[in-house]
């Protein structure tokens, strides 16, 4: 267990009721009914029609005689039918739009997530407000794509590790971070194609989003996001390159809470478990160079922080 934290101030909020595991989706109609919801919109990506995710949700609503409006998410605009009284968002694609739609309309938001997440869907990063309900049900996960599960796991591992190390980390956030890393350890014990591993990665991503909403994004996550915006790479690929640099620095300065999850060696082990399955192109040098140039151009604190990481790594080398 970790050393005990010094007297400090913090605030924590996680907002959503979570339904996680086998038959979680079966609770959806009752939860909506209790809230007085009778005509939810089911917001989904165009390619999700007929998938197990869509079918699971619509079947379970129909099973309980609940009316719903399927709404296809498109980049330009999403419009809701009159009398819609809640939004159910399926998967990660329409997550941002669903957050904004629910925020603007004041409607309750339920999110049904899978093992494909970028670890922002379940948080409050889009509007400052958490979804009302989160559902993770393995029966609704689409066809197994181990590369995507591995990328979710890498993104979650980065955020969870950073959240343990943040200045804003505290006893409550660390419980969520440790639970998330525990799930990734569980995922690493199984083949990534298995439902167990996929579900564990999905749960870790959900916990990463909740923690990140409270502790903020760390240096690596921020830089990865910046690199991703440039279109050259995506966050999990950049994380896989940059996280080891952070771990090296943490080893030098002593991780406050990292000890409770087995230290930086355990994080590296997990990274090694997931990265080979993630199908990343081999371009470590390019990513490092791009990260350095992005950091040098950045006037934000994470730019300076990432340069320090390079310095530490350089000194070690």
């Amino acid at each position: 267990m970790s050393s005990v934290q010094q007297l400090s101030s913090f605030s924590f909020h996680a907002g959503s009721q979570m339904f996680i595991g086998a038959q979680a989706l079966d609770h959806l109609p009752y939860v909506l009914h209790q809230r007085g919801i009778s005509r939810p919109a089911v917001l989904h990506a165009p390619d999700r029609e007929g998938t197990s995710l869509m079918k699971s949700v619509t079947d379970v609503l129909a099973d309980c005689g609940m009316l719903f409006f399927p709404v296809v998410f498109r980049q330009d605009a999403v419009s809701l039918e009159e009398h819609t009284d809640a939004v159910i968002a399926l998967g990660n694609v329409p997550a941002r739009a669903a957050h904004q739609l629910a925020f603007q309309s004041g409607l309750p938001l339920a999110m049904v997530l899978t093992d494909l997440q970028n670890c922002t869907e379940a948080g409050n990063m889009h509007t400052g407000v958490f979804p009302d309900y989160l559902f993770l049900d393995p029966s609704a996960y689409p066809r197994a794509v181990p590369e995507l599960t591995a990328r979710t796991a890498v993104a979650a591992l980065t955020m969870l590790t950073e959240s343990l190390q943040q200045d804003r980390a505290h006893d409550i956030s660390c419980c969520f971070s440790e639970a998330g890393i525990g799930q990734l350890q569980e995922a690493a014990r199984q083949p990534l194609r298995s439902l167990q591993a996929r579900h564990a990665a999905a749960e870790a991503a959900l916990e990463a989003a909740l923690v990140r909403s409270n502790t903020g994004a760390g240096t690596v996550s921020s830089v990865c996001q910046a690199l991703s915006s440039s279109g050259f790479t995506f966050p999990s690929e950049a994380s896989a390159v940059l996280l080891p640099l952070l771990l090296a620095q943490m080893d030098q300065h002593g991780g406050r809470f990292l000890f409770s999850v087995g230290g930086s060696r355990e994080i590296l082990r997990l990274l090694d478990e997931f990265v080979p399955s993630a199908g990343f192109p081999r371009r470590t040098d390019q990513i490092l160079a791009l990260a350095r140039s992005t950091a040098e151009l950045s006037h934000q604190h994470h730019g300076r922080d990432i340069l320090r990481l390079f310095d530490t790594a350089g000194a070690e080398a």
Binding site: Q23, D26, H27, P29, Y30, V60, D63, C64
Partner: peptide, 9 residues
Amino acid sequence: IQAPALGFT
């Protein structure tokens, strides 16, 4: 029981 599927289980 909150849903027929849960009753079935």
